[in-house]
Structures are given as structure tokens and as C-alpha cells.
Design a binder for these strands. Sequence first.
DNA 1: CGTTATTTGTGCGTATGTATT
DNA 2: AAATACATACGCACAAATAAC
Lengths: 249, 249
Amino acid sequence: MPVRAAEQTAAYQVVARELRTAILRGTYRDGVRLPTEAELADHYRVSRQTVRRAFHDLVSEGMVYRVPGRGTFAAVRDGQYLRQIGSVEDLMSLSVDTMMEVVTPLQRRVDVDAAGRLHLGADVVHSVVFRRLHDDVPFCITTVCLPPHIAALLVGAPEVASAGTVSDATIIGLLDPHLTDPIAQAEQSITAAAASPSLAASLGCNTGDAVLRIDRLYMTITDVPVELSISYFLPEHYSYRVRLRRTLR
Amino acid sequence: MPVRAAEQTAAYQVVARELRTAILRGTYRDGVRLPTEAELADHYRVSRQTVRRAFHDLVSEGMVYRVPGRGTFAAVRDGQYLRQIGSVEDLMSLSVDTMMEVVTPLQRRVDVDAAGRLHLGADVVHSVVFRRLHDDVPFCITTVCLPPHIAALLVGAPEVASAGTVSDATIIGLLDPHLTDPIAQAEQSITAAAASPSLAASLGCNTGDAVLRIDRLYMTITDVPVELSISYFLPEHYSYRVRLRRTLR
DNA sequence: CGTTATTTGTGCGTATGTATT
DNA sequence: AAATACATACGCACAAATAAC
């Protein structure tokens, strides 16, 4: 059988993507049965194998679970945005299905604490505040602080120039091509906090609600700090997932 | 084509398991290239598709990465992903300077959610609740759920037999010597929550305070769940720190 | 610089097994 | 017992990336 020529995205990825967004949008609520392989194959005009390939990806993402003889069921709890994170690459690819909306554009600011954590001599940093959205629902507010000489690399970037701008960028993704030394590591600290009034307003929750706080310090291979980001996540829409593996000896 | 009759573990799982163990044992270090699909198919006397199926699992686990035209390469390096409190070893050695105090001893319980996450058919689990103390200050409450056949390994253990018992043990450390398959991986989910009244009483904080919630599902190398632990941490006394590294190629 | 061999990626057909309804 | 639905396995054809010549 011939194969479609020069197709950009594979058929199974199209199917997986549509089902994934449908589940996240709540078309299939928690535990609801999805169409069968045969039905989906018929609908998308692909073979059953291609549908299976798509389902296999969704299973390993934890989006659905399957029971032989019964069917395939949505596994998302409360529409929570889940993502497996375990490397800097994962952080950089955060933009594939989330949007960034600028709240406060990139500007000069005095911040002793941030400057100290960036190993700067002076107290001046440049910072930008943005929300991150998934399916138009905000789930995170992030403040990014940069040393002045790093911020200079972003002067022309429209993604961080004015409030309200929406893009699918990440700061680290914008920076990376311009850096001589690539970003090679990040130190993360994860804790819980109560939402401040302004935070609650931006995220659409109540003051005092429990939120997840993640601080990240990105560094080059030579341990030079490049970016400090402080993010507050809504726990209803986000949880941080990691897979740990033991080396057998 | 005929299929082998009544095979217990699927052929692709056998292949995946052997490759996984070989990588974790260091047979394929660093970015060493693995045998090609054709070679492995020949070696295991299976079709190329079956080898591909195995590789697909290993890719989604992050064990290997593949490059079209070049080959398949081992992706696990020593301490590549997570340091500090980030590896399974660190979780097991959590007891070095903390004490465990039993709140509710190990007992049989019905918990549909926990049973589901442990991939059990029935709804019965065995669970134990304990506080973790550092310098006599409680900073964490943990509920551990075990499948019945695993809990049976702890029947004689005094560390979990009665409320009030204080020891420097960890559940995983108590279990590990008795398991046929060693614990090789864990899936973690980290989020924030508000302290319930009982939680607040045990931890010495106020109801509604923001606490860090960490769920861990420990599994053997064959993906069999062994233990589910749900912990609530006081953010003042604990933050989860991870160092992420980028794999430069 | 093109050609060729190697290697992984995609897509589909077929057959059969197993679990559920 | 039969129908339904997912699971496994193999085969084939062709595409695309890479490397060697």
C-alpha cells in the first residue's frame, strides 16, 4: 500500500492530538468511554493500527487507560494539566501546548534577593511577569529575572515587549540561540505557599488558597546563572510529575 | 501468522525488559549505540515490529533515544537526571536524620482510589500512617498503601505494628530486602493542598494552611506497583529540590 | 556531488488471542 | 454461545535521515 507523500505530521499524531485536546477540553470527562478503535479508524479514515499507535502514546502520557473487552477511558482528573518533567529539555518544550501572556513587560528593576541568587554584584535585574495558559485557562504566574547583560539579548523580542502579548514562547527558548554557552542545568526548589491578593486576582482563585511555588535557577555549563524564574501554579490545574529511576548495580 | 499459545509475558515485553536491565546495569553506557532493530529481531527470533514495539516503550520511559538513519542509543547515565532528593536511593535513605513515628498502625482498609493506583483488582489495601520528625519537630505526615501480598511481608515488623512507635525506618527500606524483584523506579506527583483539620493537628499548623503534597508510586523493574505513599509536608520545614541537567549532544 | 547501503519512521493488512458484555 | 473490543505478532511497502563511498 502506498503512503501519503511528504506528510508533515504523522496520521497517528493527528489522531492523538485531537483526542488529547478533546479530553483536556472535557469532551470526554473522567472515566467516560471513548469511541472504539474501529469507530475512530472509520472516522479518521485510517487503519485500526494507526489508531492503536495514537492510543499507545496517550496511555504512556497517562491521558487514557484501556481495558481489554471494555474499551478506552479518559483518565484525566479534574482537567488537571499534567506533564512529565525530568530534564531541561522538558522545561524548554513546555511551550508545545501552552501559551504565554505578558502581564508586565520586560523592564529594569531593583531586587536585592533576585540579584543575589543570580550572583550579581549590583542589585539591578530585568524582569518580566507573565501568565501561562492551557486551553485559554491560566494555570501559572511566572516572574523571570535576568542579569542586565542577558536581558540585552531580548531587547528586540516582541514576545516580552508589551503587556497582553500572547505567544507560545519560553524565556529560555528565546535566550538559548543567543547564548555563547548553552544552558546546561537548572536548580529547582518546589514548595507550597498561600496566594497573595494580587496573585489570586491574576490566577482567578481566592486569597490564601494553597498554590505550588517553583523556583528555577538556570545555569550554563560553567555554572553561570542566566535566569531566575519564580512561578506560582494552581494545584487544580497543575501538578509536577517526575519519574525516578534506580540504577541497578 | 500464528501466535504463540498462552504466552505469559508478551514477546515485546521480554525484549524491553532485557534491554532495560542491560542499560540500567551499565552494559550500554553513556550514549552507546544499541544493536539495530534487525539485529535484535534476529537475536530474539521475533519480527522487526516486535522489537520496535519494545523500543517504543523504552523511548517513552526515557531509557533510550533514537535517531533516524543512525541508530538507538542508551540515554541513562549515572545520576543524569536527578540529584539531591531526586533519586530513588535518596528516597530510601531519607531516614538518615529523620525519625518515623507511627500514627495509625498497619491495617487492612478499603480504598478504591489507592487500589486503582496500585493496579489491584479488589479494593482492599493495607495502610499505615506515620509522622516524620526532624529534631523532634514534625514536618511530614505520610499514608502508605500496600497491596495485601506486599503487606504480608511486614506482618512481624515492630516498626509499623503499633501507634506511637518511633524508629528510623522507611517502608521502602523495610520492604526491599524481602522483594524478589527490586524496586527500580518511582513516579512522583507534587502539588499543593490546604491542610485539613486533622492534618493541621498532627503537623502543628492551622487548618487551611498551604502544605506540599507528594504522591509516590514505587514500582519494580517490571512496572509492578509495590507501594503508594501520600505525604503532606510543612513548607516551612521542607522544600523539594532537584537539579536538572541537559543532555548535550 | 550524487549514489548506495543502512537504519529508523510511518502506514496498513492479516491473523489470532483474550477479556468483557 | 456470540458479539464486541482491546492485545499481540508478523509481514510488507515505502519514506526519510544518515553515513560511507
